[in-house]
Write a protein that binds this DNA or RNA. Structure first.
Lengths: 249, 249
DNA sequence: AGTTATATATCGACG
DNA sequence: CGTCGATGTATAACT
């Protein structure tokens, strides 16, 4: 089918297109002058202006202003999208139940509306994630410290999961927390929580935060708590090496 | 001007529209069969399929699959969007410098492309945020505990910011951490970090986590650490009361 | 520009 | 379905 387009449609025609698209599991986009209201986890109101509305078959609904990465209002998938005419305006409502929330758009002027029956079976494949960093560490624990031996990966404790439970060359236990990005105070907190747990039974336990970088404040917090920072910036993945592309930087 | 639309355009025409739109600070949407490649903080590839592409004048670029709230690939604002023809395909590239990253879309079939010169001066107004919860607590500290007195809001320490520094009826200092949502282990960590700091000089300091709810695990962690949970679910805002709407739940 | 904390975070994994 | 931790998190506030 591809895409259907209405330019400057009557509200009733737009209502039909939205209803049909949602029923048929299709996407739609609307360029419109509108007001937006949200009610749910918080509540909010956006006065008149021109925005791009996007709806998907899974109930996802987005209101995009002319700038910014994030939609100003939205509804994640799982709910329903419906449309109606009210006082001569197109009104689109996206709702869901858990949590109970609702986005309502009143469009006083619909410039255009497009239906798009998109078919997409592909899945995004990504390299360089924290999961791959874990694989690398498991295969090369010496990169963190000579003689380090991984005992367990993703060990569960009563206060959460430890990335790695290891022992050093002397046999002292080491709790290892790994971050793909610059370490934050919250990451320090996480490590501290796990280490505190082990200190209840073994005061000799060490704690190691592994990340490509950390701010001075984080490093000081670690030092004050007798925890360690280990820099690990580069790691090779088991997957295919980086491919050259036509338009490199 | 409103919106311009090309249906099943030649790649060269699409290139012109994208280039003009970005130059003129306008939004554009493209329905296309395409492949996507990302390189930057990580790298990834998305095989052929039909997606909705959205570009904005600030450099924001989004690739939306038929389902899901989040774009499968994106570029936040601040960078540039450019288009070209390569091997007969429309290629759109969005880049930015800090961090250095790039999204490249190769569209083998462009179903449609729409330019939208959106004007929007309105700002979103929201109620029920954590900032309002802070205001409420500052005005009604007794809601947390009888006799509690707020000494300082957003106090900076060497380990980060404390939501409230207070004293109880006995004059004992109380560190208060406030969450608008159900408390998590990370929130417990945060409070623990601040309290630990004060315990260095005053072992009598109390720590209070204020939230609408907390899981059993979090409550146990708090109890084990001699910290307290205070439930605060409802609070009135200084702002206008909730308005009734045409389409209530 | 760097750091910290919030978010209607969303999402996925696991129990 | 709740809980927990990662995210190419983005974003705002502040230094």
């Amino acid at each position: 089918m591809g895409s259907d387009r209405l330019t400057d449609p009557e509200p009733a025609a737009a209502v039909d297109l939205v209803g049909d698209a949602f029923r048929d599991n299709a996407m739609f986009t609307i360029e419109a002058d509108c007001e937006v209201e949200y009610d749910g986890r918080t509540s909010g109101y956006l006065g008149p202006g021109e925005r791009l509305l996007v709806g998907k078959g899974d109930g996802t609904f987005l209101v995009h202003q002319p700038t910014g990465h994030k939609p100003v209002n939205w509804m994640p998938g799982g709910g329903t999208i419906s449309a109606s005419v009210s006082d001569g305006d197109l009104v689109v409502v996206a709702r869901r139940v858990n949590p109970r929330e609702r986005v309502e758009v009143r469009a006083t002027d619909v410039h255009g509306i497009t239906r798009f029956d998109a078919h997409d079976a592909a899945e995004y494949r990504e390299s360089g994630t924290e999961a791959e960093m874990h694989q690398y560490i498991e295969a090369h624990p010496d990169e963190l410290e000579t003689g380090l031996r991984i005992v367990e990966h993703e060990r569960e404790t009563k206060y959460g999961f430890i990335d790695f439970f290891a022992t050093d060359a002397d046999g002292t236990p080491v709790v290892v927390e790994v971050k793909r990005v610059q370490a934050t105070l919250n990451h320090f907190d996480q490590l501290k929580r796990y280490v505190s747990l082990y200190e209840e039974t073994n005061s000799e336990v060490r704690g190691m935060l592994v990340a490509p970088a950390a701010s001075d404040r984080v490093k000081r917090a670690l030092r004050d708590a007798d925890l360690e920072f280990v820099r690990l910036a580069e790691f090779e993945t088991e997957a295919a090496p980086t491919k050259a592309t036509l338009s490199d930087f």
